[in-house]
Write a protein that binds this DNA or RNA. Sequence first.
DNA 1: ATCTTGTTTC
Length: 515
Amino acid sequence: MHRSFQSSTDNYANLIETYAHDRALKPGKLLHAHLIVKGLAHLTYLATKLIAFYTECGQLSNARKLFDKIPKRNIHRWISIIRAYTRRGYYQEAIGVFTEMQTEGLGIDKYLIPSVLKACGHVLDQETGKKIHCLCVKKSLESDAFITSSLIDMYSKCGQVEKAKKVFDGMFVKELVALNAVVSGYARMGIVEKGLCLVEEMKLIGVKPDVVTWNTLIAGFSKKGDYLSVSKVFELMLDNGIEPDVNFRYDEAFDTFKKMMKQGLYPSSATISSLFPACMTTVNLKHGKEVHGYATVIGVVDDVYVKSALVDMYAKGGFKSEARTLFYKMSETSIVTWNSMIFGYSNHGYCEEAIQLFEQMEKEGKKPDYMTFIAVLSACSHAGLVELGKSLFNSIQEKYEISPRVEHYACLVDLLGRAGKLNEAYDVIKTMPMEPDLFVWGALLGACRNHENIDLAELAAKHLRELEPGSKGNNLLLANLYADIGSWGNVEKLKTMMKKKRLRKFLGCSWIEGS
DNA sequence: ATCTTGTTTC
């Protein structure tokens, strides 16, 4: 190949990458046309870049068309489209293409497997994940650190933390990323202590935890409301010194947080990137702004994690304009940020805006994920938009090819229940493809109280007692319902039953800010 | 050379 030819294709490739990065659809299409005229568009090297470009712009059918033009046995085309899909969150599609590739008998590529496993983890596709695990064992790829870390992450995300741990135990050199993935699995299952133990254990053999490790632990303990452990982790973090990957003044940042925590201001929703639990769900804008200022001063405010956490903080607190300003100023958006905004709108009664933002995502070719639908369905629920909610629920699978999770069914039951369609809600529960969890029955019970349906309420309460034997809250809800309709005998019966079972009221943690 | 971990929940 001529040198000049080579360098001109390289230039084209770089240009396509730039357009992909900027999601500059029009210039990219023009360049594509130019390449066709020049007779260069068929080159695999450029075609694979164009596939990534179209995927990045949300133009899936164009990406697929190009993909179909490259000869089937060319491995680069498979790698390029699967990676592009995974990057943009088209996980189901990525898995689909991978399956296609297996059908073609092309075997597995060690650089491709991590992307596919990532996709499996995101859509909870354990079945494909396990198959890939088997293939990796067959091809002796389990010793590859990237593959092992990805396997661990996949099991961890699918709720199989013990399996993740087993793979981790088999690792010859313990990778930090793999450790973090296991810890995150423990956190997800609510057994963060195990994660902390593992971290301590790994420190003994020279694996140094990093920012991600600490954030995962803090997030895990915060979610459980175990603030004592949160401070313990903070102390540990200080003792260990953080690997400085960003150049700023850790000491001052932590002094502030330590001071805040001494005052009882614990971060209750875990946050941020390079050390910034920018915190507080019980939104205290004063401290939040302080942390925001801090992040600005030390120059981490543009970090996507930091900014997402800030948007979330403002959105949670109902500080609409602050959240919105930050959101629209973000150069790099993450699906989490969109979701936080939609939740923020929805939880503060701006349901119309929540739905509008969802529609805007669509316009911008941003693929919603399962969390987006929880957010937008709860907006419909609050606004009483039953029909819209139902059609959105159906679109999850049909249009977006995301498998509805138990959370979505809980939203649907809530939507129908609030609207008084209790029987329809119960039908959903009877026909849903997975076991209803406590949020599903909880939604039904709540609706039963508002719409005074004793039979269904008793049924829901029965299931809740089985799912959550230690809790008193659901029985209280039922007792309130009995009281509402004046069924005092039943109230007494329930009280006796609760006494017998010694159901103690949970001690609630609440934090009220002193002015 | 390409690939993996941390932010959002009814």
